[in-house]
């Protein structure tokens, strides 16, 4: 359970460079299968439009997982994430073409806690909108 990032080398306000996570329809189909969430708004455009959505949207938990991936890639060990919470603030619309869309995640060290833990504040954007708000991860550093 060893993060590769050292607590003593991290400063409040330090930024973690942004990463892009492409999302296509196939990713939502895979996520539906793996998570067991088969709500048709995540794969059936015809159904999504009947409930007033512009198109198929990504599972909120798929978007949250991309934020988690951003943090675990930074920390070096997924086991170092001891707390992770988000609010879902906007939809990720995924068109049925070869490109889909892109979720861009960035982070900043917001706070240094005791026991070599830090709070990472995450920003996740898609098409110019924040898709997660109040996204925070507590990470156990080395």
């Amino acid at each position: 359970m060893a993060a590769t990032v050292k607590y003593d080398e991290v400063e409040i306000g330090q930024e973690i460079p942004a990463a892009d996570y492409p999302v296509r329809r196939i990713n939502l189909v895979m996520y539906a299968g793996a998570s067991g969430d088969f709500n048709p708004i995540h794969w059936n455009e015809r159904f999504a439009k009947t409930v007033g959505l512009p198109d198929v949207i990504a599972h909120g938990m798929f978007t949250m997982a991309q934020g988690g991936r951003f943090v675990t890639d930074w920390a070096g060990d997924p086991g170092a994430v001891v707390d992770y919470g988000v609010r879902f603030s906007s939809m990720v619309v995924v068109p049925d073409d070869d490109h889909g869309t892109v979720i861009t995640v960035s982070g900043v060290i917001e706070e240094k806690l005791e026991d070599k833990r830090v709070v990472v504040a995450l920003t996740a954007k898609c098409d110019g909108s924040r898709v997660l708000s109040k996204a925070r991860a507590v990470v156990q550093l080395a």
């Binding site: 359970m1 996520y31 299968g33 998570s35 938990m61 675990t72 997924p78 992770y84």
Partner: peptide, 28 residues
């Protein structure tokens, strides 16, 4: 499904090298 190829999720040896008993589950 979440597009994550981190070896600690996929390979028991990598997980054990990082100090885990077996492969670890992603945070979500």
């Amino acid at each position: 499904a979440i597009g994550d190829s981190n070896p600690i999720y996929h390979d028991r040896g990598a997980a054990q090298a990082a100090g885990h008993p077996d492969v670890v589950a992603p945070p979500t």
